[in-house]
Amino acid sequence: MNGWVRVLALHGGLLAVLFAAQFLLPAYHHGNLARIMVLASYAIGYNILFGYTGLLSLGHALFFAAGMYGMGLGVQHLGLTPAPALLAGIAAGAVVALALGLLALRTVGVAFMIVTLMFAQAGYFTILYFSEITRGDEGFVIAQAQRVLWGIDLSASANRYFAAWALFSACLLACLWLVRMPFGKTLVAIRENEERVRMLGYDTFAHKLGAMVISGAISAAAGASYGLLFGSAGASFAGVQYSILPLLWVLLGGAGTVLGPFVGTLFMFYLIDLSSGITTAYMLIAGVVLVVLTLFAPQGLMGELRRRFWRGLP
C-alpha cells in the first residue's frame, strides 16, 4: 500500500498547495491560476478519452461549448439560477457526447479524428447561425446578479478562485478514482489492444461510449464553470482552437497521467501569456510546442517522469 499512500500524498499535496496559493499570490497570478484550474478540468476531461482510452478527438470544443451554452442560455433565456444552470450545462455536454459517440465510435483512427472535427465544426457554425439566441461571435455577458450561487458571489476574485479550486479538485479526484476502478483499467486495456480486450469478452463499444460521455460531461462542467466564473459565453469557445488546446495541454503534461493535464495547462498558459507580451502571433508557440512534442517527447512531462522515476504514477 506504500504506492497508494504516495499517490494520495502527491495529489492531495498539489490540491493543498493550490488551496494555500490563493492567500499568497498577487492579484494577477491569482486570477490566472483560477482560469488555469478551470481549463485544467477541461483537460482532465479530454485526457480520459485521449490519454486513457486512446481516442484522439479533435472536437472537444463541442462539449466545452455545450456546457457553456447549456448553462449560459439557461441563465439568459430561461432565468435559471446558477446551480440548475450548471447541471443543465453538464447534462447538455453528456447528451451531446452520447450522440456524437454513437456516431463517431463506428469509426477508428484518422476517421474518428476527422468525424469529431467535422461535427464540432457543425456545432460551431450552428452557434453562429442562431446568432439571435447565442449572439454569435461576440457572445453575451452573464451579469453579476446571475452569478450568485447559494448566496456566494462568484464574480468576486476570492470566491471565484475557491470555486475553480473546488471544480478542479472534484475533477482530479474523480479521474484518480476512475482510473483505479476496473472500468478505468479496462479503458487503458482498450487503448493498448482493443482486439484482445474484445476477445476477453468485454463490450469495448460500451466502454468507449462510457468514456466519451464521462469525458464530455467533465469538459461540459469546465465549460459551464468557465462561463459562470468569468461571466461570458461566446462562439470562439466552440472553434477549432478550443479543440486543439486541450490536446496540446494533455500532450505537453503527459497523456494518460492524472496530473498531466494540470501541468500541461499551467506551462502552456504561462508560455502563451509571456509570449503574447512580445508578439500578437502567440499561437506560434502552440504550433512549435506541438511539433516538438510529437518529435521528441510524445510522452509529455509527467510521462517522462513516470518512465524515468516512478513506474506506478497513475
Binding site: 500578437t280 502571433a281 502567440y282 504550433g287 506541438l290 511539433v291 510524445p298
Partner: peptide, 30 residues
C-alpha cells in the same frame, strides 16, 4: 524534417501538421 522522423504514423502526423498549421499561419501574420 518532421513527418519522416515520426515514421508517418497517421495520428501523430495529424498532430504534427496541426502544429505546422499554426507555425505557418502565425509566421505569416508576423
Amino acid at each position: 524534417t518532421i513527418l519522416k522522423r515520426i515514421a508517418y504514423d497517421p495520428e501523430r502526423t495529424i498532430v504534427a501538421t496541426i502544429g505546422l498549421l499554426y507555425i505557418i499561419q502565425q509566421l505569416t501574420l508576423m
